[in-house]
């Protein structure tokens, strides 16, 4: 319990440090005159500043707690002063009506639930694979590390670098709290913006639609990047509204800054940013001129570009592995299977049925059944009210374009996060509009909204209850992880039995808690059809000393035999098919192999040579020396796959990270090994609620 309290206290310090850094960064800009907006702008800009600073420090190998902690403390003290100044004289509203008080209390309760869920050890699959596993690696190596075995790590990584700061401050849970802070700031931004635009009732309703649902609780407390998208899109939108009202360049520049920040969080954020800009251009077309476009676009490009340039340098593809490709065919197939495993199809009929399915049969959308139905029920009704029509229609149009891109991409509901702020606001307007329409409208609205919120709360309480024992110290972390993360028994065996210098290849995606350096033995890293020399090169390149794979994974077993590995243990493991319901899959067996010592010692440095991919050299070699390069297999693929080619296309080394969510488990698994393995793995749970797919899709 003390640990949890300390995490909360340090999260407060983190928030203050963002406020302090943001106050410094935004000092040249004039105040908007709205203290809540000023506060959130500074917090958002400060978070972005810390992320970019962490990126730069990681690039040059300076990711040390000794550097970060004093800086954060200094920024936090400055944030304390700035916050006190901003909030001087502020008062909490005291004249809330009863239902408004209930909604405010509900939001407060959800904040508490989110804190409890976040304070538990990380157990969501995507975080175990890369949202937290990447940052842990960076912290251990004091620099960014390229992890080509998980292609998601090439997505923009703004949020993951804030998670890295959490690791520098303390541990993985502290990293998870950074994400929670983004989520809470996003909620504040939506409530604040809705309040300014449409009053207190709309503010509370928009907040409830956005945050008072188990799905929102899950995304905010699971170390995903979506809360960052919610915050940045909310602030971009709010600042655009300010610009529309006052015509000041500062608001427009801030809108651009946050739109660019969204593009720096995930590829879908770039699409959302472009659509937001397009909608704004339509609404504000009379003010559209080169100068205004530049004031918006310049900061956007500056904060988003580093991620895309990094990918271009490392892989030759700024949006790796999309559009211009780069994965080997097997990895590409696995990734595609993974995206397509969500949703219920992409035919015109499926599109037509989408609203019905989202309401009545949404579990195929990756826990969509836990999302708030209020978006879909009420956002269309915003058009009933007497609000300015053009912004509403433009928002709807941009939202529908994004929805279409999502529909034809990976249909994971959480990838709709960038729409959350705007559509929560529209839903609030719709609720208000219908309550204003005769008594029956009011009665129906009250009943439906109350029912949805009550149902959501019940599920949220059940969901959060599973974290209480570990957060209050009544359950050990080991017990918790055994119950809540798939195949932890195997990880636990490795942690207890392998020598300290071991480096492990793991046949599934849940790698965060392996105490030794570990990688996910994916098709990205080594195709299942790779022969003896390529397999041996793989082991050498990553200096693998041990491997843990499923006993049915004949392809990997064969590759281990190529290297002369010997089997040293068999461990019975279980998939967790539902954390909340404590459901586990049937017993499975993983086997542990030790590779011959002689194979281990070779330093894996610059990838190109080490991997034998001679063609690649180029830009990589110019990179800072300590960026670890792991890159080769991805590069191999790329090289092979591409004739495409720019010379840079073959290089990929370094380290970054990125990505967000997509595909993991199924992906590699599906291609690896036997059909049986593929089948069973594809249903493996991820740590979270039910099935175990990891996400895969992400990019629209």
């Amino acid at each position: 319990l003390l640990d949890s309290a300390a995490h909360v206290a340090l999260a407060a310090l983190t928030a203050l440090s963002w406020l302090g850094a943001g106050s410094l960064v935004l000092a040249p800009l004039r105040s908007s005159g709205d203290r809540i907006l000023d506060l959130l702008n500074r917090i958002g800009a400060g978070a972005l500043a810390f992320a970019l600073l962490t990126f730069a420090a990681g690039w040059v190998g300076l990711l040390y707690a000794e550097a970060y902690v004093p800086l954060a403390a200094l920024a936090a003290s400055s944030g304390l002063v700035a916050g006190a100044r901003l909030l001087r004289g502020a008062r909490l509203p005291v004249d809330l009506s009863r239902w408004q008080l209930v909604l405010a209390a509900l939001l407060g309760l959800y904040v508490v639930l989110a804190v409890v869920a976040t304070a538990a050890p990380i157990s969501s699959a995507d975080a175990l694979l890369y949202h937290a596993a990447g940052p842990e690696l960076y912290e251990q190596r004091h620099r960014l590390v390229e992890t080509p075995w998980v292609w998601h790590s090439y997505q923009p990584y703004t949020v993951e670098l804030l998670v890295t700061d959490g690791f520098l401050l303390w541990d993985s849970v502290q990293g998870a709290f950074a994400v929670l802070l983004l989520g809470l700031a996003g909620l504040a931004a939506v409530v604040g913006a809705a309040g300014r635009l449409a009053g207190r009732a709309a503010a509370l309703l928009a907040g409830a639609v956005l945050a008072a649902a188990p799905f929102a609780l899950w995304t905010t407390s699971s170390t995903f990047v979506e809360p960052g998208l919610v915050l940045t899109m909310a602030l971009a939108g709010w600042n655009l509204v300010e610009f529309a009202r006052r015509g000041d360049a500062a608001s427009l520049a801030l809108a651009g800054l946050f739109a660019g920040a969204a593009a720096g969080i995930k590829y879908q954020g770039a699409l959302a940013a472009v659509l937001l800009a397009a909608a704004a251009a339509v609404v504000l077309r009379r003010r559209l001129e080169p100068r205004t476009a530049l004031v918006f676009a310049a900061p956007a490009v500056v904060v988003a570009l580093p991620w895309y340039v990094k990918n271009a340098v490392l892989t030759g593809n700024p949006v790796y592995p999309f559009v211009f490709g780069g994965l080997n065919p097997e990895a590409e197939r696995a990734a595609a299977e993974s995206y397509e495993s969500y949703g219920q199809g992409e035919s015109p009929l499926d599109l037509l049925l989408l609203p019905v399915r989202l309401l009545a049969d949404a579990d195929e959308f990756d826990r969509g059944e836990f999302a708030s139905p209020l978006y879909l029920l009420f956002a269309p009704l915003a058009l009933l009210g007497a609000w300015p029509r053009r912004p509403l229609v433009a928002t709807w149009a941009a939202g529908l374009v994004y929805l279409l891109a999502w529909f034809f991409g990976s249909q994971q509901l959480r990838f709709l996060a960038p729409l959350g702020p705007a559509f929560a606001f529209l839903a609030a307007l719709g609720i208000l509009a219908l309550t204003a329409q005769r008594r029956v409208g009011r009665a129906v609205t009250v009943a439906v909204v109350t029912g949805a919120l009550a149902t959501g709360l019940a599920v949220s309480l059940i969901y959060t209850a599973q974290f209480v024992p570990v957060v209050t110290g009544r359950e050990s972390e080991r017990e918790f992880l055994t119950e809540k993360t798939s195949y932890y028994e195997g990880i636990d065996w490795l942690n207890r039995n392998l020598p300290p210098g071991a480096r492990v290849a793991i046949g599934h995606v849940f790698i965060l808690y392996v105490d030794r350096p570990a990688l996910w033995w994916s098709s990205d890293a080594l195709t299942t059809t790779a022969g003896p020399s390529e397999s041996r090169r793989f082991f050498r390149r990553y200096r693998i000393t041990h491997a843990q794979i499923f006993d049915r994974d004949v392809a990997r077993i064969r590759q281990l035999e190529y290297a002369g590995a010997r089997r040293i243990a068999r461990v019975t493991v279980h998939a967790v098919t539902s954390r909340t319901l404590a459901e586990i899959g049937p017993p499975e067996t993983v086997v542990v192999y030790a590779l011959p010592r002689a194979r281990r010692a070779r330093p894996a440095t610059p990838s190109a040579q080490a991997s034998g991919v001679s063609s690649a050299a180029s830009s990589r070699e110019r990179r800072p020396a300590d960026v670890l390069n792991a890159g080769s297999s991805a590069r191999l693929c790329r090289a092979a796959a591409s004739a495409r080619a720019s010379p840079t296309g073959t290089t990929k080394p370094f380290t970054p990270s990125s990505t967000s969510s997509r595909a993991a488990p199924t992906a590699s698994v599906a291609t690896s090994a036997s059909p049986a393995a593929a089948a069973s793995l594809s249903t493996m749970p991820q740590g979270s609620e039910r099935d175990g797919r990891t996400n895969t899709s992400a990019c629209a």
Binding site: A360, D361, L377, P380, L434, T445, V448, T455
Partner: peptide
């Protein structure tokens, strides 16, 4: 047909669909 009537019907139908989802889920748990 008034827009508000359509809106009420939309919300009721949508709420019924959502209720089906929740009830189905509860039935699975039971």
């Amino acid at each position: 047909v008034r827009a508000s009537t359509v809106a009420v019907v939309w919300v009721l139908v949508g709420a019924a669909l959502y209720a089906i989802q929740i009830l189905r889920r509860l039935a699975e748990l039971a």
